[in-house]
């Protein structure tokens, strides 16, 4: 395996054009390094992004906020500009993992974090004793054995980013670069309902920055369910946003293959309370918890209701 440490985005893509064989981009590495230790599928090249300073900056524009993908979660949580202009995102960042991991893990890494599965996230040796699953190149799902179709494999690994629900509420966009193209995609259109491919990012692309437009929401909150508060990925994460018009939006992570987002217009309901009740009911309906997860499915459904109502009670 070879390592590369480009200092600019242009240099990065010169390297990807030249190198032969497989490569992986290394952001904070807090998820990638355990993967490299346990995987038998080691790439030929690792490209470190930590020296690319242009994607490690936080900038306030006239009508938006731009966060470089290599900004660490600790920097995001403690940055005065973020705490002044988008404190909800800083609060969400403080709920991610441990202080040491936040000092290394990055915003881009958290958005792109691989989905979690009780079966897949074991060593290849342990997995091999059961037969490989879709995500490991096999022909069945070990979590939901009834899923057998090899034509359209459905991986049920959970989406677990803590920042994504808040970014969905804030209608953020990702600026994505490849060697010859820069594109901008809304976070709401970025994720795929598939635990293997997960999102629309191509192998040769990197997320350069996250752009958050001026907030339509006057109130945004995120809450998270987990066993060990200091480190765990969300077993359930719920964000709510309320606009000045009192329209409501809800985003949910940690349960389904892709993060969920739905918005409700107050004008479609008789009053605010009815809209909240509908959002709770829809949230419970839309999540598809598995019995193998850390909390029982019925408990997660109950907590969706509890989280939405308790956060809205602070409005």
């Amino acid at each position: 395996m070879l390592t590369h440490s480009p200092k600019t985005v242009d240099e990065l893509f010169l390297i990807t054009n030249k190198i032969k064989g497989s490569y992986l981009f290394h952001a904070g590495g807090t998820d990638l390094v355990p993967y490299l230790k346990s995987s038998s599928d080691i790439p030929n090249n690792i490209i470190f992004l930590n020296r690319v300073t242009s994607i490690s900056e936080i900038t306030v524009h006239a009508d938006s906020l731009s966060i470089g993908s290599m900004v660490t979660l600790d920097q995001l949580a403690n940055n005065p500009l973020i705490n002044k202009n988008c404190s909800t995102l800083a609060d969400a960042a403080r709920l991610i993992a441990s202080p040491q991991i936040r000092c290394k893990g990055t915003v881009g890494g958290n958005i792109l974090v691989d989905n979690r599965c009780h079966f897949y996230n074991q060593s290849p040796f342990n997995r091999g004793s059961h037969g490989e699953c879709f995500k490991a190149g096999g022909s069945s799902c070990q979590l939901v054995p009834s899923t057998k179709s090899s034509d359209h494999p459905t991986c049920r690994a959970r989406s677990v980013s803590d920042l994504v629900p808040t970014l969905l509420i804030l209608n953020a966009s990702l600026v994505v670069r490849s060697a010859d193209l820069e594109r901008k995609i809304s976070v709401r259109d970025f994720f795929k309902d598939d635990g293997i491919t997960r999102n629309t990012l191509k192998v040769e692309e990197i997320v350069v920055s996250i752009e958050i437009p001026d907030q339509e929401c006057s109130f945004v909150k995120y809450r998270k369910l987990r066993i060990r508060n200091a480190i765990d990925f969300p077993a359930l994460g719920v964000a709510v946003g309320i606009k000045k018009s009192r329209d409501l939006s809800v985003a949910i992570t940690g349960v389904n293959t892709a993060p969920l987002f739905h918005s409700y217009q107050l004008s479609d309901f008789s009053d605010f309370e009815q809209m909240v009740a509908h959002a709770c009911s829809e949230g419970k309906k839309r999540i598809k918890p598995l019995k193998q997860d850390a909390f029982p499915p019925a408990y997660k459904k109950l907590m969706v209701d509890q989280f939405i109502r308790s956060m809205i009670s602070e409005y």
Binding site: T3, H26, G29, V33, P34, I101, K104
Partner: peptide, 29 residues
Amino acid sequence: CDNGECGCCTIHLDGRPVLACLILAAEAQ
């Protein structure tokens, strides 16, 4: 644990507390 969960390998990297088991030495150049 060598997996980022126990925190016993905490060191300071450029002044910040991090887990040495989750960092490739090559990155710390």
